[in-house]
Amino acid sequence: MLIVDRVSKKFNVNGKEKIAVDNVSVKIKKGETVCIVGPNGAGKTTTVKICSGFVSPDSGNVYYDSISLLNRKKYLEKISVLFEGIRSINWALTPLENMEYLSGLRGIKKNKKDIEKYIEMFELGDYKNQQCNSLSRGNQQKVAIACCLCLETDVVFMDEPTLGLDMEISHKIIKILKTYAQTNKKIFVITTHDSDFIEEIADKVLIIEKGKIMFEGSCEKFKTVQNTNTFKEAYLKYRRVI
């Protein structure tokens, strides 16, 4: 189980203190996929960055199976993270080389067969020997997600995995991640604005505003509370946009 225990974080922005994450606590069971939703600047990315050890919290802690985030080496072995905006691949390398390189960077030696499995899963066969800087944005994102998944960690954090992608690629990625999450019993924590993504994949939704969790529950529960048919309508109604 992944436990986020009373995590808080403040930043100093132009001399003013800004609360990014405010006493956030959540428990996520093995096999659960959690989507974090909220307006821009709500603290979604900071929450993921804290849970993945990229930003230090001011207070609170994160545990996976009783391993504390403070026990950095052991904790980080259990997690992988996909940062926003293709910050997770080496653009000078090909998709095949990237998967091999990023696994090797963690001391994991992947054989070609293991890597080919992910190449096939993300339909990257035609581009596997092409440098990533010459791939389309959608294919670069597929490579980044494939690299993240091929580490085969227990917990996967993803920050806006479908941001800026066209509907077709976005749909393909949702399908792949859904199948992967169902068959591998991993914990997925994903920040997103994509309502289709949330409807398809989320077992639990966290709505964050000004660093606080305002709602925690299933997508269905949220729709019932807001008395709407889709998550998009429910969210907009909640935000009083409609």
Binding site: S52, G53, F54, R72, K73, K74, L76, E77, I79, V81, F83, I86, R87, S88, I89, N90, W91, A92, L102, L105, R106, G107
Partner: peptide
């Protein structure tokens, strides 16, 4: 090249 984040979160 895009891998600094991955290096920082390396065990």
């Amino acid at each position: 090249s895009g891998v600094l984040e991955q290096i920082i979160v390396n065990p």
